[in-house]
């Protein structure tokens, strides 16, 4: 399965959920869905915005874990 490690990168960049949500223009509730791993999918546009704001690569926030 693919897991989002957004928390780790956010902690490294010292950015709060509210700040990130505002910067990538999604609701805090949707960001919470992403962070808790409840999301079924992530749009390329959202991924691009997160990478731009956090100055990282998709691979930094997405990890493949073998079931």
């Amino acid at each position: 399965m693919v897991k989002l490690t957004l928390n780790v990168v956010m902690a490294e960049r010292n950015i709060t959920s509210r700040e990130l949500a505002a910067a990538i223009d999604i609701t805090p509730a949707n960001l919470s869905i992403l962070k808790t791993g409840k999301a079924k999918a992530i749009r390329f546009s959202t991924l691009a915005k997160i990478c731009k704001v956090l100055d990282c690569q998709p691979g930094d926030i997405l990890k493949y874990i073998d079931d």
């Binding site: 999604i26 960001l31 869905i33 409840k38 999301a39 079924k40 999918a41 992530i42 749009r43």
Partner: peptide, 8 residues
């Protein structure tokens, strides 16, 4: 719809 709602 549930899947769409969980696509961020």
């Amino acid at each position: 719809k549930a899947e769409n709602d969980l696509t961020i």
